[in-house]
Design a protein around this nucleic acid. Structure first.
Length: 272
DNA sequence: ACCCAGGCATTGG
DNA sequence: CCAATGCATGGG
């Protein structure tokens, strides 16, 4: 194992909580106290170490991937919320860096899979997809590539638990030839416009793409059911808030809406 | 046997 | 522009 320093503050347990709490993800696999992911064709293991992480293997290919995956790009030093509720979470969860999905196709397929159904159900369906069309390394699987998925038919996906409609969305995305490198250069609203032009990708999916793949500071998925519940709990006197109200509350956290969303969601899942 | 869960597109007013 | 509807699985 080789040591990789992380920008401070950094808390491995908080950052990786997401890979444990909704069930296991075969492409981002929590196994024996560490996070496993396939980079190229090699499996990488990441585990906690003082001031950063221990990584095996660590080289020029895995180093940037691990840093991205563990949210190194977020500017936590500047994240000092004036809002008292968020300020408390910022301290309580100090060092939490929202994990970033390194692969845009994986991110979008995952989001389509999770539309409307519980995350637990979505992980079950997605894992069957990864197991069937991904490539296993040691423990973890490489997420299926768009090239591979482009050659499938609707039936290949519905047998895994996808609805017919979602199966078509995934196939159409795989065949879209979307240039993700170009999209990554666009401002937030143009990314959303480019993505929502595709069938099956609405504002919710595009917002999470901005947040969890592009790590855009102002991404704020106001329509997300879980975020609406959390914001309603923290800011709404127990009354359920509308998407519009949640959107307005997000403006308080400018320009740290993405970090705010993740801290509120994680804080709400934590005991106490 | 229900109902809900980190949506979206389609249809009809 | 807004309301109603179908979709798929897993847990309660």
């Amino acid at each position: 194992m080789a040591f990789l320093a992380m920008p401070q503050p950094f808390d491995f347990e908080h950052t990786t909580e997401r890979f444990r709490v909704f069930g296991l993800d075969l492409a981002n696999l929590w196994h024996e106290g560490g996070l496993h992911r396939v980079v190229g064709t090699r499996e990488v293991r990441i585990e906690a170490a003082p001031g950063g992480v221990d990584v095996e293997p660590l080289d020029d290919e895995t180093r940037p991937l691990v840093r991205t995956l563990l949210g190194a790009d977020f500017d936590l030093g500047a994240f000092a919320p004036a809002d008292p509720i968020l300020a408390r979470l910022r301290m309580q969860l100090d060092g939490f860096r929202p994990p970033i999905a390194p692969d845009p196709f994986e991110m979008l397929v995952g989001a389509i899979t999770a539309q409307q159904i519980s995350l637990f159900a979505a992980f079950a369906v997605r894992n069957r997809f990864v197991e069937r069309y991904g490539v296993r390394a040691d423990h973890a699987y490489a997420f299926p590539t768009a090239e591979r998925v482009a050659g499938l038919q609707q039936d290949d996906l519905t047998t895994l638990g996808y609805s017919r409609r979602k199966a078509d969305y995934v196939l159409s995305l795989a065949r879209s030839g979307l240039d993700f490198d170009s999209i990554a250069q666009l401002p937030d609203d143009e990314v959303k416009a480019a993505l929502t032009a595709l069938p099956g990708i609405g504002e919710w999916t595009a917002d999470w793409f901005l947040a969890r793949h592009l790590a855009r500071p102002r991404a704020w998925p106001a329509g997300d059911l879980a975020l609406r519940k959390v914001v309603s709990d923290f800011y709404g006197d127990g009354r359920p808030l509308t998407t519009e109200e949640v959107r307005e509350i997000g403006a308080r956290f400018e320009p740290f809406q993405n970090l705010a969303a993740h801290y509120l969601l994680l804080g709400h899942r934590m005991p106490g």
